[in-house]
């Protein structure tokens, strides 16, 4: 038997300001067009000498420099060393920050005890530690790793503490009424509440740790993208400098996308709507 539905679901009336006559392909065409115009303009301005070519080489030269690098032997090694240090830093900082944050979030006296120390260490710009790190750890990639972990650890720790405590009281009462063990409660109630906090934190930690790795490469001279960028400038090869800046941006986009993908997979498996 088919039951007559009493009320057809009302079609959602668009409440936001409607964009009248927006072209269908606008989201793809417009930026492509804008990019093409910008590149052509930049090329024209430098070719005609309006912009100094030694500072802003024409886009075609930057592209050519990029192609040369892509064919070179050291490029992938350079990229690889930056990205591997970066990923390693995340793999250390995120679980460490989560674990410590969970403990501090659950055990309030310890958290109250350590809070001032955390609040003092957290805002120290970790680049300030570079000279110290050079003296103690040296000039290897391990220094960059330490700095990146130090910087992103705090960015995970503080949201993790807040996340553990953000579990809804009713969810906690439910867990108590079913006599969940501590592990069950953590796994099924508090982890779900933590995830949105951790997602934001991880995204912030991702960009922070890349900044620190690149900074360490520039200042200490550790092999990597940052080092290539600063070397290109000091030998006056602006096109190569821009090429490596572009590469660092692309690397940033790719890793951000991977992190976002992982995040979404984790959210879906915990029944949280893809948030933000």
């Amino acid at each position: 038997m088919v039951l007559p539905t009493l009320a057809r679901p009302a079609p959602r009336v668009p409440r936001r300001r409607p964009a009248p006559g927006r072209p269908r392909g606008g989201a793809v065409l417009l930026p492509l067009l804008a990019l093409a115009v910008a590149v052509a303009l930049q090329e024209a301005l430098t070719r005609t000498g309006v912009l100094p070519g030694s500072y802003f080489p024409p886009a075609s030269q930057t592209a050519a420099a990029l192609l040369v690098e892509l064919g070179g032997a050291t490029f992938w090694q350079t990229l690889g060393s930056t990205v591997s240090t970066w990923l390693l830093a995340l793999l250390i900082a995120v679980p460490l920050g989560t674990a410590v944050g969970t403990v501090l979030g659950l055990v309030r006296p310890v958290e109250a005890f350590l809070r001032p120390v955390v609040e003092f260490l957290r805002p120290i710009p970790s680049v300030a530690l570079i000279p110290l790190v050079v003296l103690t750890i040296g000039t290897s990639a391990r220094s960059a790793l330490f700095l990146a972990v130090f910087a992103s650890f705090w960015q995970v720790l503080v949201p993790a503490i807040a996340g553990v405590r953000s579990a809804h009281p009713i969810a906690l009462d439910t867990a108590r009424s079913y006599s969940f063990t501590l592990w069950q409660r953590l796994r099924w109630v508090q982890l779900a509440a933590m995830l949105p906090h951790l997602a934001t934190a991880t995204r912030l930690a991702t960009s922070t740790s890349l900044i620190l790795v690149v900074t360490a490469e520039i200042i200490i001279g550790i092999p990597g993208l940052g080092h290539e960028i600063t070397m290109s400038r000091s030998v006056g090869n602006a096109a190569r400098m821009y090429a490596y800046i572009v590469v660092s941006g692309v690397a940033g986009i790719v890793v951000n996308a991977v992190v976002k993908r992982l995040e979404r997979a984790l959210f879906v498996s915990h029944g949280i709507g893809a948030q933000a």
């Binding site: 088919v2 007559p4 539905t5 009493l6 057809r8």
Partner: peptide, 10 residues
């Protein structure tokens, strides 16, 4: 009106 619409839908 609601009833008529339900019949029309069914």
């Amino acid at each position: 009106m609601v009833h008529d619409a339900a019949l029309a839908d069914a």
